[in-house]
Amino acid sequence: MASNTPMYSIPERFRRIENLHIVFWLLKDMSWALLWKPIGMFMIVPTLTVAVLITYQTRKIKSELFHNLAVLFWIIANCSWMVLEFYETPDHYRYYTAIPFGIGMFFIAWFYLVELRKN
């Protein structure tokens, strides 16, 4: 049965990078959970680098761009929170991670409330 629904596909090379990103993110979070400070700190760089690359690669597809910007800021908040816990900073510093989380929420809200309504 044929469908008139438009189909979205992602190039295979982009999909491989996204899958690698999941591996990096899981390694970073597992290191955080197990208190493996050196590995967790090291994994910040590849995790953020690949998130920036994915965001850049999808910049021409608005829905992907806005969602990937939200993910990028989620990871920034997540990495910040991990560093704060690793270095046993006072608990109230954790609330500053709400700033990048909020920026990520802003991108999602903007997409659904403004960009999606344009089409």
Score class of each variant (00 low, 15 high):
residue 62 K to Q: 14
residue 49 T to E: 03
residue 49 T to P: 02
residue 54 I to R: 04
residue 56 Y to I: 07
residue 62 K to W: 06
residue 64 E to S: 14
residue 65 L to A: 05
residue 44 I to H: 02
residue 66 F to E: 13
residue 54 I to F: 07
residue 42 F to G: 12
residue 60 K to V: 01
residue 57 Q to P: 00
residue 66 F to M: 13
residue 44 I to Q: 04
residue 48 L to Q: 04
residue 63 S to R: 10
residue 46 P to Q: 03
residue 56 Y to Q: 12
residue 69 L to V: 04
residue 53 L to S: 01
residue 49 T to G: 15
residue 63 S to G: 09
residue 50 V to D: 01
residue 59 R to G: 00
residue 41 M to Y: 11
residue 70 A to C: 06
residue 44 I to T: 06
residue 59 R to L: 06
residue 59 R to D: 09
residue 42 F to D: 08
residue 54 I to Q: 12
residue 65 L to I: 01
residue 43 M to G: 02
residue 68 N to A: 08
residue 58 T to A: 09
residue 64 E to T: 00
residue 65 L to H: 09
residue 42 F to V: 13
residue 51 A to S: 15
residue 49 T to Q: 04
residue 45 V to G: 07
residue 58 T to E: 12
residue 46 P to Y: 03
residue 52 V to D: 01
residue 58 T to G: 15
residue 54 I to A: 11
residue 58 T to M: 09
residue 60 K to Q: 15
residue 47 T to L: 05
residue 60 K to W: 11
residue 68 N to G: 05
residue 51 A to R: 04
residue 64 E to N: 08
residue 65 L to D: 00
residue 42 F to K: 05
residue 61 I to H: 13
residue 66 F to Y: 15
residue 42 F to L: 15
residue 46 P to G: 03
residue 51 A to G: 07
residue 57 Q to G: 14
residue 52 V to F: 12
residue 42 F to E: 11
residue 69 L to H: 03
residue 67 H to A: 11
residue 56 Y to M: 08
residue 61 I to N: 13
residue 67 H to R: 11
residue 66 F to V: 07
residue 65 L to T: 06
residue 45 V to Q: 13
residue 50 V to Y: 04
residue 65 L to M: 13
residue 48 L to Y: 04
residue 57 Q to D: 07
residue 70 A to H: 09
residue 55 T to K: 09
residue 46 P to I: 11
residue 49 T to C: 10
residue 52 V to P: 00
residue 46 P to H: 04
residue 44 I to E: 03
residue 45 V to F: 15
residue 68 N to Y: 05
residue 53 L to C: 05
residue 48 L to W: 01
residue 71 V to R: 03
residue 58 T to N: 10
residue 41 M to R: 10
residue 48 L to K: 00
residue 44 I to M: 11
residue 62 K to R: 13
residue 48 L to V: 09
residue 58 T to H: 09
residue 60 K to G: 07
residue 68 N to F: 10
residue 55 T to N: 03
residue 64 E to W: 12
residue 45 V to N: 01
residue 65 L to Q: 11
residue 65 L to Y: 12
residue 46 P to M: 04
residue 57 Q to R: 14
residue 47 T to N: 00
residue 53 L to N: 01
residue 60 K to N: 15
residue 41 M to W: 08
residue 70 A to S: 14
residue 64 E to K: 05
residue 69 L to D: 00
residue 51 A to N: 12
residue 64 E to G: 02
residue 63 S to D: 15
residue 70 A to M: 08
